[in-house]
Design a protein around this nucleic acid. Structure first.
Lengths: 211, 211
DNA sequence: CAATACATACCAACTAGTTGGTATGTAGGC
DNA sequence: GCCTACATACCAACTAGTTGGTATGTATTG
């Protein structure tokens, strides 16, 4: 509930460290000590802000939702006039984010939920919230694109929005499986291209690029 | 090196336990003691067969490749005459496997690679092998389907085969994010439906079912 | 054939180091 | 003086891995 974001306090430093360390090593293998070292704070500070490691896990997922949510809200694809254009530009935007090292472009909650879905329900729910809410930001445009074309398919806009997230999460896994010297971002980008081609075919638009 | 497979020895009991426990809790959170308890063997037996925990991780990935490889090799979809039919029937087969609890239908190597891609290269490579080789079993049919139709697309058969694996891996993540009482297999199945629809559109076949 | 030699498969107890978490102290603002 | 926000010191439980040992097979040799 605290405000006044002047300089980064221990809590936000810990959350920032969590995003980076957990995406690199996974949740279980990330130790509290390591998080404290990466954040430059002591263990006392950690347990002052978070009762348990799992509570930090939940907070990290929520923090991830907030920061990525703000980033996508500010992204340029929203400025396009046509709903389908916006949706496709969102896919392009996701592809453009596949830059740098694997830990930098992969998803925190996709990583965490794999390790915690059976053992830490609170973290799993936080990850579910993060994915579901992000997918929900796509639904209105998908529905508008469907309505414009008078489509009454067997699938729902929500299922298609979730499918886009599935493709992205799966692309991250393929990227992680590639050795570092191989082009990890490339295999992820290939899958995003297939996803975009699906959407174009589905909405009756000629597949665009030689990408 | 293998012997007459009469009764399960400690090594195969440990590998079987690993498939189940790691898929439930993740690799890092799975302890050697827990594996031994699940397999009904002692720690001495564990370190007799595997020098380190990571060595078991590699062996588990290889074991996963072998057992699932044999299962897919024996699956009925191979009996269809047309290459595209075979490919689409493979997708149906994957969808039909989405039964039971999440730990039972999800993928061991997809789970493990997320936790080990930066910290245990040997495990990451074993996971990469497993995914790549499975994807490779689809390439011939995809290429035949492309050739039959005289297609010369911007994408390759291999990238499409990998894309199918990305969708499946991503579907598993979405399923893990759902609370237990919700229909976890259902959201995964929805994504597989979208994947099948993509393939039908791509190869110019009318999307089939009301599924 | 039997004794020796060695290998494989496994077990129970132990260890050194790590883990999440706690107890207690303190500096600075209100 | 009291609360918040940390820091220091510490611990009990757990961790991967080790040790010394046993039981059982198998190949060799006299």
């Amino acid at each position: 509930m605290a405000r006044s974001a002047a300089k980064p306090d221990a809590r936000s430093k810990l959350l920032a460290a969590a995003l980076s360390v957990i995406r690199t090593k996974g949740y279980s293998a990330t130790t509290v000590d390591e998080l404290c070292a990466a954040a430059g704070v002591t263990k006392g500070a950690f347990f002052h802000h978070f009762k348990t490691k799992d509570e930090l896990g939940v907070a990290a997922a929520d923090h991830w939702s907030e920061t990525t949510g703000a980033m996508f809200a500010a992204a340029p694809y929203h400025q396009l006039a046509d709903p389908l254009d916006r949706f496709l530009a969102y896919i392009d935007f996701r592809k453009a984010l596949l830059q740098g090292g694997v830990p930098e472009f992969t998803c925190l909650v996709g990583t965490m939920v794999q390790e915690t879905y059976e053992t830490a329900p609170a973290i799993r729910d936080a990850c579910d919230r993060s994915i579901s809410r992000h997918a929900a930001t796509l639904v209105a445009d998908i529905e508008a694109a469907m309505a414009e074309r008078g489509m009454t398919p067997t699938w729902t806009a929500q299922s298609l929005a979730l499918h886009t997230q599935a493709v992205l999460q799966g692309a991250f896994i393929l990227a992680k499986a590639k050795a570092k010297d191989k082009n990890a971002a490339g295999v992820a980008a290939d899958s995003v291209d297939h996803l975009k081609r699906y959407l174009e075919l589905l909405f009756g638009r000629t597949p665009s690029s030689i990408t």
